[in-house]
Design a protein around this nucleic acid. Structure first.
Length: 903
RNA sequence: GGGCGCUUAGCUCAGCUGGUUAGAGCAUCUCGUUUACACCGAGAGGGUCGAGAGUUCGAAUCCCUCAGCGCCCACCA
């Protein structure tokens, strides 16, 4: 025995040192090589200050499988890692931290530069955590090319794209209704909203000639319009008229208009509108050219201009008081207590959204400025075309539909955020000396101040202070998704067309959760096509990736979203790595999951795969116990394959290589994994190794199959396979060549003989178990099976050993066995004909049924092919395919007929 | 209101373009320490593939209807 290996695999002992070896070998860093094809993935950058959760773990596992598979296939496989600055999330964490330290209003007290310093320090301190956690997962990504969305060169890229879009008039500043979060004092994009169901009161008030219903009386001060449906008979005569009546702060005048957005069945069918604080009302007001006065200020309080009595009150305070006042005036009709409605909240921080009208920066999605396939196209059209023309494929397919639907409803994208952590908008506003003084007098000057001062519309795009005149830089930063939209190409050096960029872009696969299809995926397509088309690259090089693979969400055992607030079912990937090893965790995240579908994860599943990892380890250990060091040097060739079992396992291995390859190419990772798993455990271990324990030991095949198993399994379980490989390989497994399907190693007849041997053994075992043979009783088996008998003659020893037979008589016909029968009288006897022959009639019937089925099919197909109309209409390929099918079916039919005759 | 997905063994899920007797893991039951592994081995039980109708020689798979669950989108004041 030349190899000394411990009897159990301890992941902790190996993982860190193996990862270090990989890194040091530079296996993760592909060189630009014109003789190789590139394969690129950009890691969706986790939050720089975050920690690894199961979603990340699943993402890394899947991406690493793709990268390792391609690397072994000889691609220059590049996986670019990085982290995201997560603007709102990070700034609010740091602000809260500072507040806890006694700085009540960090923005006001510290000012921009100092606060940013605190944030940078915080990010720097916590950034290594996530990096190390990615390493823990075994990610074979190229750390030498690591990026951070706030890197200096990322800023250059962001500003470059911003500049081009600004010059094209695609980025514009405009007053529009936006989602304002009074808590965080910033705007939020439409798709960053979440809707929470909330129970509320629905108030009915007398409002001039009608009764209106509202859940938000506090916004109703200046409502001057009653809206009804044009077809509503109750109000038809009143439309267009003006009314004067008593309201919250005395008498007001209001006009009635008609619009078909009104639901006649809701409430009384009449409503008033508050354009400044409701997205719907704003659209309606725009259609009817109505005023939109601000009622609630940016802190969520009633403005003094609106009402002296209620000035400065918060929404909830004001609501109660206003309702009380209207009740006193006798205008309150009733209160519906059982009303539920949806409240928009910021998905980060969960603050309630208060729609506001304000000046913000937008990306125009409808302006036709992109030169795309010989036409001027808008962003919207390009986004559509990329998927429609199949330049980009989404896996699974159904998400393409969802994507199109989203684009149809796409509105201009609000890209400015009123926070400081992020890429500051490279725009300068022209101001007067006096205005500049006011703006500079405050630490926390915001875009609201610009609005209050009513500054000049003149702006200039520049990343540095313009020289002549007084200019004030726009205080806002860009939406995080604006910078992460450039991820695929800016990480490769853009705006410079570096060697990396030219070689590795477009990337091959973007793998991410379906929950950020809109947030991120669509925006990456937007940024990439815009930026690279303006570089005059051909269209097919402008897409950020060729395939989008969307994985599902990881849920807990009850199907709920995993959250730390539920520690019983919440799983921390790092705990699992500690307990079961990375390989086990990776398998549990990949196996049994399919793209786009959510998956439940629980500890038992991970433990199950730990058992498998250990099985690989021990199977290898056994194989190596039967191999000598000198065997490692021998080149494997056909003549080394000897027994039926050898030929069978070699044949099975070829089948496995073929199907695993097919699955991996088609993003069916679970399928590939399951097939390899089954091969290792149920074929190699349970049969081949067991057979090997007898006289049929063959180190050459043992080793050859082992090596191939390790290679096939490596993308899934990189650590344990590499650990085993270190005993037998000269170089590391990570850079070994992927197994190739080889016709030479297919042995149909011998493989079939071994299948028969397996069946016989299984059958005897089953009989033994069912008939409850007492321990110590001897079993004598008589096996007879026609012409196949000769083929399994050499497996006699194996059958006897594995089925634990005392004696075995093998014969072509049953006659000889009958004679031998009298020899064994006292012990258990088993008469075992080959498969099916036990019940000859049944077998015959079975085959006859199959023949009938084939006959039916063939006649149906022939009928179809003799139909002249079909021949005329159908495409050639289909007819050819049918012809092929017909021939193969006929062949199969003949085989079945032969079988029947044989019986 | 519109769209999408899921429903397969007790549990968690595979099942790609229709094709032998529908699979796996876990759990259950019965055996078993044998040249690696008890994180093991052998065997067994367990499914009218959500319901109904249709296309087909043939349906878990394709079409339609319905039900339950879940998700996304959208202008319920």
């Amino acid at each position: 025995m030349d190899f000394q290996i411990e009897p159990a695999y301890e992941a902790k002992k190996h993982e860190d040192s193996i990862y270090k070896k990989w890194e040091e070998s530079k296996a993760f860093s592909p060189k630009i090589d014109p003789n190789k094809k590139p394969f690129t993935i950009s890691l969706p950058p986790p939050n720089a200050t975050g920690t690894l959760h199961l979603g990340h773990a699943a993402m890394i596992a899947i991406e690493d499988i793709m990268i390792r598979y391609h690397r072994m296939q000889g691609y220059a496989a590049l996986w670019v890692p990085g982290t995201d600055h997560a603007a709102i999330a990070t700034q609010s964490v740091v602000e809260k931290k500072l507040q806890a330290e006694g700085i009540k209003n960090p923005r006001q007290e510290l000012g921009r530069e100092k606060l940013l310093l605190h944030i940078r320090k915080f990010v720097e301190e916590s950034r290594s955590t996530i990096r190390n956690q990615i390493r823990k997962m075994g990610a074979s990504c190229d750390w030498s090319r690591e990026k951070y969305t706030m890197d200096e060169d990322m800023n250059v890229a962001v500003n470059t794209l911003f500049g081009r879009m600004y010059e094209d008039g695609v980025i514009y500043r405009g007053g529009r209704i936006v989602n304002w979060d009074p808590n965080m004092q910033t705007t939020v994009a439409d798709d960053e909203l979440e809707y929470k169901e909330e129970k509320a009161k629905l108030y009915y008030f007398k409002y001039g000639p009608v009764t209106i219903s509202t859940a938000r009386p506090e916004t109703k001060f200046l409502d001057k319009v009653i809206v009804v449906h044009p077809k509503d008979k109750r109000y038809k005569k009143l439309v267009g008229k003006e009314f004067e009546f008593e309201w919250i702060d005395g008498p007001i005048k209001a006009k009635m208009i008609a619009d078909d957005c009104i639901d006649m069945k809701f409430g009384t069918g009449a409503m008033t509108i508050t354009p400044a604080h409701s997205l719907v009302d704003y659209e309606l007001a725009k259609r009817h050219k109505l005023e939109a006065p601000q009622i609630i200020d940016f802190n969520g309080k009633i403005k003094p201009e609106v009402s002296k009595e209620f000035a400065g009150l918060s929404i909830t305070e004001a609501r109660a008081k206003i309702v009380e006042k209207l009740r006193e005036k006798g205008l309150l009709v009733k209160i519906d207590e059982d009303y539920t409605h949806k409240v928009a909240v910021n998905y980060r921080g969960k603050g309630t959204i208060e729609p506001q009208i304000m000046k913000q920066w937008f990306v125009d999605v409808n302006k036709k400025v992109i030169q795309w396939k010989k036409k001027k196209c808008s962003i919207k059209e390009v986004l559509q075309d990329c998927i429609q023309s199949k330049m980009i494929k989404i896996v699974p397919r159904r998400f393409e539909k969802i994507y199109f639907h989203w684009i149809d409803n796409l509105q201009d994208w609000c890209i400015s955020r009123q926070i400081w952590w992020g890429h500051q908008i490279p725009i300068w506003h022209k101001v007067t000396a006096e205005q500049l003084k006011i703006l500079n007098s405050k630490n926390d000057t915001s875009t609201l101040d610009l609005e209050r001062l009513n500054i000049n519309e003149e702006v200039q795009f520049s990343t540095t202070q313009p020289k002549s005149g007084q200019w004030f830089r726009d205080p806002d930063t860009l939406d995080t998704w604006f910078s992460s939209a450039l991820w695929t190409f800016a990480t490769l050096g853009w705006p410079n067309h570096t060697e990396d960029f030219k070689y590795f872009h477009p990337t091959d696969v973007l793998e991410t959760g379906y929950d950020i299809l809109f947030f991120w995926v669509a925006r990456m397509i937007l940024a990439s096509t815009y930026a690279l088309r303006s570089d005059k690259l051909p269209e097919e090089q402008c897409i950020p990736f060729k395939t989008v693979y969307l994985h599902g969400l990881i849920r807990d055992i009850n199907g709920k979203k995993m959250s730390k607030s539920n520690p019983e079912t919440c799983i921390d990937p790092l705990d699992m790595i500690e307990k079961y090893g990375t390989d086990s965790l990776r398998l549990s995240l990949v196996m049994g999951s399919s793209p786009g579908n959510d998956m439940r994860l629980y500890e038992e599943k991970i433990a199950g795969y730990r058992n498998f990892v250990n099985k690989i380890w021990n199977a290898s250990r056994f194989a190596l116990m039967n191999i000598e060091k000198k065997d490692l040097d021998a080149e494997f060739n056909e003549s080394m394959i000897k027994s039926n079992a050898d030929k069978w396992i070699m044949t099975e291995l070829q089948k496995l290589i073929k199907s695993a390859d097919h699955d991996l190419k088609n993003h069916q990772f679970s399928g590939a994994g399951t097939k390899i798993y089954d091969f290792i455990w149920n074929q190699y271990c349970d049969w081949y190794l067991e057979i090997s324990k007898g006289g049929q030991k063959n180190p050459a095949v043992l080793l050859y199959v082992l090596k191939n198993i390790l290679k096939l399994m490596h993308p899934f379980v990189p650590f344990v396979t590499e650990a085993i490989w270190s005993n037998i390989g000269k170089t590391m497994l990570i850079t070994e060549k992927w197994p190739e399907y080889n016709n030479k190693f297919i042995f149909k007849n011998e493989a079939k003989a071994t299948e028969l041997t397996k069946e016989i053994i299984t059958k005897i075992r089953s009989i033994r178990s069912e008939s409850k043979v007492e321990p110590g009783k001897k079993i004598h088996a008589f096996v007879y099976g026609g012409k196949n008998t000769e083929n399994i003659e050499q497996d006699k020893e194996t059958i006897m050993r594995l089925a634990r037979l005392e004696t075995m008589e093998l014969s072509i016909s049953g006659e000889k066995v009958k004679e031998a029968k009298s020899i064994f009288l006292n012990d258990i006897e088993i008469h075992l004909p080959f498969k099916g022959m036990l019940d000859l009639d049944k077998e015959k019937k079975n085959i006859q049924a199959q023949i009938d089925q084939k006959n039916n099919f063939i006649s149906a197909l022939e009928k179809k092919l003799s139909n002249k109309e079909f021949i005329k209409k159908a495409p050639k390929e289909i007819i050819e395919k049918d012809m092929e099918r017909l021939n193969s079916e006929k062949e199969q039919l003949q085989k079945l007929k032969d079988q029947l005759i044989e019986l």
